[in-house]
Design a protein around this nucleic acid. Structure first.
Lengths: 225, 225
DNA sequence: GTTTATCAGACATCAGACCAATTTCAAATA
DNA sequence: TATTTGAAATTGGTCTGATGTCTGATAAAC
């Protein structure tokens, strides 16, 4: 662990860990040195080290387990919503999908006339993949890919980041949803319809198809809870 | 400060402060007791208290100044974006407004057919206010009110919360923007157009007018930087 | 072979001492 | 009198050592 510019002891700890992760030196699952050793490495006291680790805990970057150690994790998405005061629950799942609907509709309006032939080819492959794939993990992957691609066209890192948070929360849900044959069928046809609307550069149809797609999902989720 | 259920010392501190804020016992600007006293009040050690305070600092709920004290603040919005890795800057202002555009467009599609006569009356008053008002602070207030009202119709706490974060970031920007007569004129006519589109329950027009409104703002901001 | 006891390792907490920044206020000064 | 200065008090920042508590592994008992 490299010592970063010192403004104060606590920030030094936070930045050192962040930097080590950024450099790929620390990966998810890695165990940090024990508090005493790490404090010495960074040249700070154990209290200051702990204060830094507490902040990283709050950010969802590490997780400390008493008697065991402190590990690198990525609970940032979860903490993102917790940060806003929301815990995952049945009701919040619907709220959460509605937020997603808002973003996906808003995004498609922003990008519907910006897609190139190359984009269409890529999207075509993704839709095809969703139709061809045989295993649950593949559906989930293909579904995510399609939506993430549309978001990425915005070329707006903030929009993409917010979407990442939502996608991370959605993974678990998708795994359950795609166990239903109906949902899978809906998704296949919906993605194709969205793509067709995009190809026609028909904004109104884009909005309708995206809206429909997610509303269907919401209806399914409401049935689940 | 009331002692909350104790799972562990640090969480106790965090929850106690949060609860006191929720109860309105602590307001923005209030000063917390000095660390030693507060630790005794809550029955925890000073180190544990400090770890809790550090978490609240990370959340943007309090701010500690050496030699002075610890105060209740609300930097949650700022920290929210910092958490996502974004610092306020000229370029990020545009990204940030584009995120806002995505959300406002997505939201108007979600609510355009849900407004009642009463809603229209309220919105009408708000548009009128924006036109009548004479002072900068009033414009800014009226503009915020209009957009927040539309978001609130969604009745989705997550959407509203994300909007709150954005609104908080936007305040500073609006103060500068509304110093331009052109921007003010644009805003007045844009808000009226949006309201008219809503009254006609014309989704396509809603999307167009909202899109236009924020695109105009983005253009102005681009000129500013 | 399974269960239980013990022990080492690691985080959790507390207390005390000292450091550093800020504020306060009274004394010195112009 | 008004201003400057500087020392003391206040408060958060940091370090250290001792002790508590939880977990996992190993050894002992059955």
């Amino acid at each position: 662990m490299e010592r970063i510019e010192r403004v104060n002891a606590t920030a030094l700890v936070v930045n050192s860990v962040k930097a080590a992760i950024q450099r790929g030196e620390l990966k998810i699952g890695d165990k940090l040195p024990r508090e005493y050793d790490m404090a010495q490495e960074l040249g700070v006291g154990r209290s200051s080290l702990r204060e830094g680790i507490k902040i990283l805990n709050a950010y969802g970057v590490v997780e400390s387990r008493q008697g065991e150690g402190t590990y690198i994790v990525d609970n940032r998405a979860k903490n993102f919503f917790e940060f806003m005061g929301f815990l995952p629950s049945g009701e919040n799942m619907v709220n959460f999908l509605e937020l997603r609907r808002v973003i996906e509709v808003g995004n498609i309006v922003a990008i519907y006339d910006k897609l190139t032939e190359k984009d269409f080819e890529t999207l075509e492959r993704m839709v095809q993949k969703l139709c061809d794939d045989q295993f649950l993990e593949d559906y989930v992957e293909a579904d995510k890919e399609f939506h993430n691609y549309l978001l990425s066209v915005s070329e707006n890192p903030m929009v993409i980041q917010v979407n990442n948070m939502i996608t991370a929360m959605r993974s678990e849900l998708l795994n359950r949803l795609f166990q239903s044959e109906t949902v899978l069928h809906d998704a296949r046809s919906a993605h194709r319809q969205i793509l067709e609307a995009l190809k026609r550069r028909d904004r109104e149809a884009c909005v309708s198809t995206v809206l429909n797609h997610i509303d269907t999902t919401i209806a399914h989720v409401k049935n689940m809870y």
